[in-house]
Structure formats: C-alpha cells, structure tokens
C-alpha cells in the first residue's frame, strides 16, 4: 500500500498553484489535508502525476465573515472551523454536523474544502453546504467563478470543477435562527453515513431538509411542515434503489422514514 510516484509542488501563492494546474490539468491533484486522497493513493486507486500541496498558502487560511455568508478558505481544517468562536451563532448547522465528520484525528488535518472537492455522497460537509444553499469559489488562471452548491456536486465524487481549477473557498450562508438539526446513521461511530439528514427550519411552516447517502449526491428539498408525513413518504419512495454492503435500499428508505421526523422535530424544538 504505497502510492505510485508523483511530482510534488508546494506553491506559496494561489497564483502559483493555479499556474501549475494550467500546466498539468487533470493529471494534477490538489493536496490539502489528504485524508481521502492519500488513502486512495496508498490503495493505488488514484494516481495523479502531480500533487499540489496548498496547505501552507497563507491566503487560503481564512475564516471570513462576509455578512450574509461565512467564507472558509481551502486550507482551513475541519477542526479549525469547529473551534471557530462564532460557529454556533453564525453556522449552527455546521456546529451540529462537523462532529460527525470522521474522527478528531482526521478532522485535525482534513479540510472543509477538501471534503467538498471529494464529493462523497454521504459526506456531512457537502450535505450541509447543499442544505444551506451555499456556494463554492473556484479559481483558475482565467479568473474566479462562484458555483452554487446544487450545481457543484454532480454525482458520486463528480463535481463541476474543471481540471484547471482549484477550490479556494466555500461560502456558507449565515443562518442566525437556531432551528437546525443534523443526525446520521452509520455502522460505526465516525464511519461514512448510511444516511445523513440535515434540517433547517424556515419560519413557522417550512423546513429545508437535506439528505445524504441515498443517492449519488445530497438531495435538498423544501417541505411543508403540515404535510410532514406525506412529504417524507414521498421522499422515501422517490429515491432510486441505492444499495451497498451495509444497507439495502429498503433499509435506507425505512431509516429515512424513521429518522427524518426526529431530525425535523429536533430542529423545530431548537427553533422554539
């Protein structure tokens, strides 16, 4: 379990990093925390010809309050965001979701943006970003573009990022109301979720629900709280069969039916 050979570059600036991407394109991969990428490389399931280590680029190390959004730079680790003093006030959903991301030790190195870039269908951070309708900031030598979360993640481990682009930051909309909840079901503590559910209460009658692990990417839907039961049933039956070693499609649907009302109730209780 040793990685194949690759060139290594540790640029000092974003400009240097995107210049390398322009030069090497798809063959290069950004290395930030490496908590997913290095495991795949050790298993020889990924073989970039170059790794661009961005962890030391100072301009990527920010958590910035932009008023209605919080911008998290690509070098910010999950544990750093979790320890950000304003997290509970500004991003309560992230405060609820981040403890489910891997383990203390992997959050120490794994980055917020890395998880977005990796785009695992059951990951907590992409699910939170999608539920909050946040966005992803991409940079290439051609300039910067901002892509909405719903357009960014296309399918399992597939995103709208072009080969010459890197994620420089993600933006989470500030959610000052306290009506949020996040829960997931995994075989073991810290495992990839069989199903993960995020909920954000919107006013008295509506909630935004985000569901991970049921399809190739998170599903986000606005639901009417009065119609809760039928809305959840429609969601459960609406998914195509999504099955793996640990969960049948039928099990996933039933966990969704069981768990979603609890998460919504928790979010509502939290809002009250």
């Amino acid at each position: 379990m040793k990685p194949r050979p690759f060139d290594y570059a540790r640029p000092d600036t974003i400009d240097e990093a995107v210049a390398l991407l322009a030069e090497r394109g798809d063959e290069a991969r950004i290395l930030a925390g490496g908590q997913s990428l290095m495991a795949m490389m050790n298993l020889r399931l990924a073989d970039p010809s170059m790794l661009i280590d961005i962890a030391r680029i100072a301009e990527l190390g920010h958590i910035r309050d932009l008023g209605d959004t919080i911008e998290v730079g690509a070098a910010v680790t999950q544990n750093r965001l979790l320890a950000w003093p304003d997290l509970t006030a500004k991003l309560p959903l992230l405060a609820a979701a981040l403890p489910f991301v891997g383990h203390f030790q992997t959050r120490n190195k794994g980055t917020v943006c890395g998880s977005i870039a990796h785009a695992d269908p059951s990951s907590e951070i992409p699910l939170s970003l999608a539920t909050l309708e946040g966005s992803v900031v991409l940079r290439s030598t051609g300039g910067e573009r901002v892509v909405a979360a719903k357009d960014f993640q296309i399918d399992m481990m597939t995103t709208a990022r072009r080969g010459d682009e890197m994620i420089t930051a993600v933006r989470f909309p500030v959610h000052t109301g306290r009506g949020v909840a996040f829960r997931e079901v995994a075989r073991r503590h810290g495992d990839f979720a069989i199903i993960a559910i995020a909920a954000v209460i919107e006013g008295k009658d509506f909630a935004q629900i985000g569901i991970g692990g049921m399809a190739g990417k998170p599903l986000v839907q606005r639901i009417v709280m009065k119609e809760l039961k039928s809305e959840i049933e429609a969601l459960a039956t609406g998914f195509e069969d999504y099955e793996d070693l640990h969960a049948s499609a039928a099990l996933r649907r039933d966990i969704l039916r069981n768990l979603a009302p609890l998460v919504l109730a928790e979010a509502q209780a939290c809002a009250a």
């Binding site: 290594y8 490496g34 290095m38 203390f104 030790q105 120490n108």
Partner: peptide, 19 residues
C-alpha cells in the same frame, strides 16, 4: 500511526514526509 505535527495529532500514513 498517529503522531503530532506542530502539536496536532494526525495520521502519519496519510501524510507525506514532504508535508
């Protein structure tokens, strides 16, 4: 394989020596 880099506990098997 957990070690500390600048005081922070990380998996050294998912870390390059270069890092």
């Amino acid at each position: 394989c957990t070690v500390q880099i600048d005081g922070t506990a990380v998996r050294s098997c998912l870390t390059l020596a270069m890092q």
